[in-house]
């Protein structure tokens, strides 16, 4: 690889200014949000002195607390299920040939390209029909809530997980699995001791992606949520309609912090992925 050519003179100045402008554009809103989350004024955009009140209210407000709890539970459950199913889908598509594989492959990626709103309406319709059927056939009366949110989140997360895991699987030498079976490993042991450790960075990356997507989702959740089961982003959205207080800023800062932690973790997983990819070469 040739060493990069460093820009000089006016090119260097132009590029530097450009970089600063872009970072300003990215981070000025974030900075403002953080600053105003400490503002004592009841008006969102006016500075009224420093206070922790809004964070205190975040800790005491039952609506926020229950929404946060729902968000976390939904994210954990849906991620767990999506990771297992998505990894299984990735394995079957990378390692086996079967009838209808191409169709399955194409259909698996559909949720990634379908607009959120479409997906949300589909889900709403699905649950309405499904609950009606259950009611008519078995006399079960179910309603939208935690379960329907989790199922919807699983539905859109699987695709993302399987894309990430597949990329990792495709880069893995499949004679390693053959070698492990030649060394008396059963199919399960070959997966447990060879395949899984080698694709783990992919699985972890997929899990973090699913977790982030689930924690961030507003549109789909809003359609399939029921009374008493609101996730944090949906709750924030509804706060805005009721009249805005800097509480929103505080909640947003906390969600931002969670997202940053997750992104940092996924970067870390990616780095170890590259390190081990180097090893396998």
């Amino acid at each position: 690889m040739s060493s990069p050519v460093l820009p000089r003179g006016s090119a260097k100045l132009g590029l530097t200014v450009n970089a600063w402008l872009i970072y300003l554009f990215f981070y000025a809103p974030i900075l403002l949000l953080v600053v105003f989350s400490f503002s004592a004024d009841k008006n969102v955009g006016r500075w009224g002195g420093f206070t922790f009140d809004w964070y205190r209210e975040f800790g005491q407000n039952d609506g926020v607390q229950s929404a946060l709890g729902v968000s976390i539970r939904v994210a954990l459950v849906s991620t767990l299920v999506a990771v297992v199913l998505g990894t299984m889908a990735a394995l079957s598509l990378e390692r086996f040939t079967f009838r209808g594989k191409k169709v399955f492959d194409a259909l698996l990626y559909l949720p990634i390209i379908i607009p959120d709103v479409t997906m949300a309406v589909m889900m709403l319709l699905f649950f309405a029909q499904f609950f009606d059927l259950l009611d008519a056939w078995f006399g079960l009366s179910l309603s939208k809530g935690f379960g329907s949110i989790v199922i919807s989140h699983i539905a859109f997360s699987i695709s993302f997980v399987s894309v990430v895991v597949r990329a990792r699987l495709a880069g893995m030498d499949d004679t390693l699995e053959e070698a492990s079976m030649d060394l008396y490993a059963s199919r399960w042991q070959a997966f447990r001791y060879v395949t899984l450790p080698l694709i783990f960075p992919g699985v972890a990356g997929g899990a973090l992606l699913a977790l982030t997507l689930s924690l961030d989702d507003v549109v789909i959740t809003q359609f399939v949520a029921g009374p008493g089961s609101t996730t944090l982003p949906v709750f924030v959205f509804s706060l805005i309609r009721r009249g805005v207080t800097p509480l929103i800023n505080a909640v947003s800062v906390i969600m931002l912090a969670i997202s940053i932690v997750l992104v940092a973790l996924s970067l870390f997983a990616d780095r170890s992925k590259r390190a081990s990819a180097k090893v396998s070469n």
Binding site: A179, D182, L183, Y184, L198, S276, V279
Partner: peptide
Amino acid sequence: VNTVFQNYALFPHMSVIQNVGFGLKM
């Protein structure tokens, strides 16, 4: 039977001794 593969197919995530002991462990 056991096989020595063309590209050796050593497990990259295991140490040399873990590679050698894999068959016995299984």
